[in-house]
């Protein structure tokens, strides 16, 4: 115990429960996430994964009524819809609320690194879904978060764009290594990206998997396939034909 105290976890959740009205959504969740770990939260719709993420993001004002949780000071959230303000240009969306001297230059270079440097002055309405999500990712990473919370950020993208975004995300967080919690319903996405996969079922963490598949991960790798199969089964999908 004393040995572990030196490295305090980035995210610590203690006995967190949450109900909406009579319907319990999270039940007595206890969870430690070490700094720099990439965690994927898997679960069916209604399993409570988004609720947990919103609590960590500080968007759920009633979440502290039972249990407790601590997160780093600098948290950034990536939403499923890119959530860019339509009346601000892309670069103004990135710098909004950003308190640093070189905000504009930093935003521009971040846009360059997500591959939409030429869209800085464009309005979000003129961007494709993938470009919007790139801008949102740039906005999040520009803040050098210690914790990046992502709520199905690639769920609304087409399959090809999603693959590119996976690659981009891994590349961009390689150096800064923020702690990441990614909510997803895509098993492949989870196995491809995460160091650790938590399966939420009926408001509890039902399974906790380490992903040991070496990077770069290929779906053809036997460990990849095996983990994918087990996860799908635990989510109630029989995988004979998949």
């Amino acid at each position: 115990m004393t040995l572990h105290r030196a490295i305090s976890p980035a995210v610590a959740v203690r006995r967190l429960s949450r109900a909406f009205g009579d319907r319990p959504v999270l039940h007595d969740i206890t969870l430690n996430i070490p700094s720099g770990q990439f965690v994927a939260l898997l679960g069916e719709s209604g399993s409570g994964k988004t609720t947990l993420l919103r609590a960590l993001a500080g968007l759920d004002d009633d979440a502290r009524q039972s249990g407790s949780y601590s997160v780093p000071k600098n948290v950034s959230v990536l939403f499923q819809d890119a959530r860019l303000l339509p009346w601000l240009s892309v670069i103004d969306n990135l710098t909004l609320g950003l308190r640093r001297q070189d905000a504009v230059q930093a935003a521009q270079s971040m846009l360059d690194s997500v591959g939409i440097g030429d869209k800085a002055r464009a309005y979000p309405a003129t961007l494709s879904g993938g470009q919007k999500q790139r801008a949102a990712l740039a906005r999040s990473l520009l803040r050098n978060p210690d914790l990046l919370l992502a709520d199905e950020p690639f769920g609304a993208l087409d399959a090809l764009t999603r693959l590119k975004m996976h690659d981009l995300l891994l590349r961009l967080v390689e150096r800064s290594r923020p702690t990441i919690v990614l909510v997803t319903h895509d098993v492949d996405e989870a196995v491809l990206l995460a160091d650790r996969i938590l399966v939420l079922r009926d408001g509890v963490i039902a399974e906790d998997h380490r992903v040991t598949v070496p990077h770069p991960r290929r779906p053809s790798h036997p460990d990849f396939e095996d983990l994918r199969r087990r996860l799908l089964r635990s989510l109630g999908v029989e995988t004979e034909h998949i």
């Binding site: 959230v77 009346w87 601000l88 609320g97």
Partner: peptide, 26 residues
């Protein structure tokens, strides 16, 4: 959704009014 975004970006109240509430009401 825009209100939530403003919270996660840590906007001040006046930043929120100028950049989110007023343009949204235009």
């Amino acid at each position: 959704g825009h209100v939530e975004l403003a919270r996660t970006l840590g906007l001040t109240r006046s930043e929120f009014i100028r950049n989110v509430a007023l343009p949204g009401a235009l």
